[in-house]
Every structure is written in C-alpha cells, then in structure tokens.
Amino acid sequence: MTAPAPSPGTPAVTALGGGHGLYASLSALRLMSDRLTAVVTVADDGGSSGRLREELDVLPPGDLRMALAALCDDSDWGRTWSDLLQHRFVSGGSLDKHAIGNLMIVALWELLGDTVTGLDWVGKLLGARGRVLPMASVPLVVEADVRRDAAPVRETVVGQSRVALTDGRIEQLRLVPADPPACPEAVEAVRSADWVVLGPGSWYSSVLVHLLVPELARALHETDARVCVTLNLAAERGETQGLTATDHLEALHRHAPGLRVDAVLADPSAVEDVDELAAAAEAMGARLLMRQVRRGDGSARHDALRLAAAYRDVFEGVYGDV
C-alpha cells in the first residue's frame, strides 16, 4: 500500500502540538494540503499512554495515535481503521481504558525496533494524508513553576497530566531531561516546510513544550518557513484558567523571545481586546488574522472547514477582516 503522491503547488506544512488541539489543526490542514507533517509532544504520563510508557519504557503513544487518526484517508477503509485506532476497551481488568491504537503502535515499535518506521507503517495502513513524528526520541517529563494566588513561593508541578490541571499561574516550563535528543526527521520537517503551524492545544503542556527541545527550537528559529500561531477558543480549566488571548501569546514570547512569528490566527469570540492582541502579535513580527473558526454549536471546538479556510487565507496573505 502506498500513499498518493503529493499534489504540486500545495504548501508543505509542519504542525506542532498534541492531543485534541493538534487533531483540530490536522483535520483542517488535510483539506488543503497533502504535504503534511505532524510533530507531536511525547510527555504524556496519564491514562493508557502513561501506563504503557511506565510498563514498557516507550514513548507515550496517545498523542501520536490521535494525529494519525486525524490524517486518515477519507474512505471507508481509512475511517474504519481510524475508528479502530481510537477505540478503547471497557473492562474490569488491566485492559480497561487502553486504546487499541496505542497497543498497535507500541507492538509495531517492538517488532520493527524503530519509532519512526512504526509510525510510518500505521500511516500506510490508514492511507494517512501526511506523516506523524515524535518531537523527541525519548519520553519526556514536563515540570512547571507555578504560583498560586498571591503565594510568595512558587511550587514545582511535575508531570504533563498534573501541569495540565494545575490551578495556579505557570511562570516557567521545563523538560526533563533538559537537553533531549530531537527526532531528526522532525527537525528536518521544520527546516524544509513552507509553513509551520503552532497550536492550538493545551498551551503549556502540549504547545510550548516543543520550544524546550533545543535542536527543535533551533530549527524553529532558523527555518525559512513562515510561522502561524493558532490561538485557542477558550482558556482551559487548569493550566490556562483566567488567561486572555494576549496572555497566551505573551507566554509564547516569554519561552521563545527570539522566535519570529508571521501570523496569529484567532476567533473573535475568544479575544477580549483585539487592539491589545494585535499589538502583542506585531511585537513578535506577526499580523493578526481574525476569523470565525468555532463550530456553530457554540462549543469550544474548531470547525474543520472554517479552520481550513482560515489557514488558506493565512497562507495566501488574505488578512482583511471577514
């Protein structure tokens, strides 16, 4: 089974993130380009992924699985295999809450002895419109310095699942190990892209962590690709509770002050002060693009078609208000 050849003239896009946020961006990007690469966080320590990571000493497969499912071929074949990847067992035993795709991915890693090759084989099975890669070659631990209310002393929160749910203000983010080996194919995907898309997603635990892998961060700073930051539709309970859209952008700038950003994409319903956000974007060298990308049901979820149209405007330089 071979993937279809990329269409000439479509942009090469590398999307960074994890979980439901990366699933949203990939679900949109696949509608406008088949030259896609997903670079996925590997710091998950909860649920099925965390159990497999601890028991078998492997990369947590869950976010990688979700990215593959987002890129599956839009056919009965692709949709069926995507549904199988996402299916979770419900039982009173040790298989409870395990996703079949997590088990499949880890089994391929054991059989083939190579992480990237295993992910490529799953992509072939799905007819995936793109490639899925880990951001690092080893599993990572996220640490965050958190200040709760007006407490004079910062608390260190350890683990992606705990950082995501913290009720304090995150001031600084770290990875353990601090200098992990980046996935070489992921670094090359950033360097060779036309566009790099950062976000949406859990801002600290899934998005900003990519900037803490030194070799990947270097590629992001040095690439000729243009960079689009996609802001979330709402602050999340936990790590970004109470943060404005501008706060999200300033957190990015704080963790990567030298990163050049070309475009910031936001939904008007998620922006408290448009002028303030535009000024923050301009300070990073970016233009702000306001587009309605939320689903029509009012939920804090992206509509794939609307988001795809917004990305097309970003890539083609159509920045007027719509």
Score class of each variant (00 low, 15 high):
D96V: 09
A144P: 12
L305H: 14
V274L: 02
L288T: 08
S192K: 09
G199C: 00
T240P: 00
M32H: 12
V229W: 13
T115E: 06
Y319Q: 06
L71K: 10
G130T: 06
V157Q: 04
A193C: 05
R129M: 07
L103N: 03
M284V: 07
L265W: 11
E282W: 09
I105K: 01
S27G: 14
Q160I: 02
W81T: 00
L36P: 03
P4G: 04
G18E: 05
S7R: 15
L211Y: 12
D313T: 12
A310S: 13
S7P: 00
S299M: 06
G296C: 05
P152D: 11
C183F: 01
F89S: 10
V141G: 05
S33Y: 07
T115G: 09
L243K: 13
V196T: 01
P184V: 14
W195D: 03
T115Q: 09
L233V: 12
D275M: 05
A164Y: 05
A28Q: 08
P181H: 11
S205W: 03
D303V: 02
T166W: 06
L112S: 06
A136D: 08
L119C: 10
S82R: 15
H248F: 02
S91L: 11
V187S: 02
G101S: 10
V116A: 14
P184A: 07
G130H: 07
F89V: 15
E155D: 15
R169Q: 12
L289M: 12
D120G: 09
L211W: 13
D63G: 10
V116R: 13
E171P: 08
I100N: 00
A67V: 01
L305T: 13
K124M: 01
P200L: 05
L16H: 02
A225W: 01
R169H: 14
R295C: 10
S48Y: 00
A266S: 09
L31F: 09
V42G: 03
D44L: 12
